[in-house]
Amino acid sequence: MTLLEVKDLKQHFTINKGFLGKKTTVKAVDGVSFSVNEGETLGIVGESGCGKSSLGRSILRLIEPTSGEIKYKGKNITDLKGKDLKDLRKEMQIVFQDPFASLNPRNTVRDILEAPLIIHGVGNRKQRLEMIENLIGKIGLRKEQLSNFPHEFSGGQRQRIGIARALTLNPKLIIADEPVSALDVSVQSQVLNLMSSLQEEFGLSYVFISHDLSVVQHISDRVAVMYLGKIVELAEVDELYSNPQHPYTKALLSAVPVPDPKQKRDRIILQGDLPSPVNQPTGCTFHTRCPMATAECKTIVPELREKSFGHWTACIHV
């Protein structure tokens, strides 16, 4: 069953340049559509600055979307306000990238985990403590550590506390914004495995945002590739990694290191830098760096089309 449905979501930011300067618009997210099923993990990959994080925050209504529609369990949540919005917060939560910035340094772990319960008026003091103690066991910390402050923990432990905080209200959907990018590789797998087991236990759906292709491959059921605020390819994880269609996806996948020195590799090296999202190229935004680009690409904006069952690509040459 579809849990989350995003239709033509746009997130534009207006910047004032100087006192008399012109206003310019940054199109961080520019017409993105996808859906997330119950119990599923949707991976979203892309370079820095392609709008992945803005997309996550926009879905959570942490920033107000410019246009488009977000449906949760079939209900339009794009314009929710007040109490309805607060109730929605119980359903979807976020895990942040930086485990050092995402926990209030002056609060104990107990304060941090109890806050969501207090905000939503769940239980009394004793019941809340029980819930927290139960939760902290699930993320592999001890009860005695509840009175410790964030700086007394390692990066991995902090990230697990961040995950526990997101779970206190029993949400259905977790937006994970680069949850392991700031961690050591050995700790990464620990946190990823924790996320997988929690997903099974609580029936969670994840929107897993990352720039790390192998991490996304490991955890996702389906993967969306973003470039300059648009989804360029969306498919089942195995299909996408074994049979990439869009030239950008091909280039990204060819850059993943393979731990075998003998294997011959055909790397596709993209020319130039990511264009500024302020001055986006015309037509297909990728044409400035695309090895397959033709004259048409400068004028025609490619639609995201279903090429084979469940495999969507936005390229006129595929």
């Binding site: 925050r57 910035a101 995402s102 340094p105 002056r106 609060n107 806050a115 905080r165």
Partner: peptide, 26 residues
Amino acid sequence: NAEFIESSRALGAHPFRILFKDILPN
């Protein structure tokens, strides 16, 4: 704009709670 403030917003905390519990102490 620190992430722990954003997290409190994502949890549905009232702005005054964020002001007194997260922002002022820090």
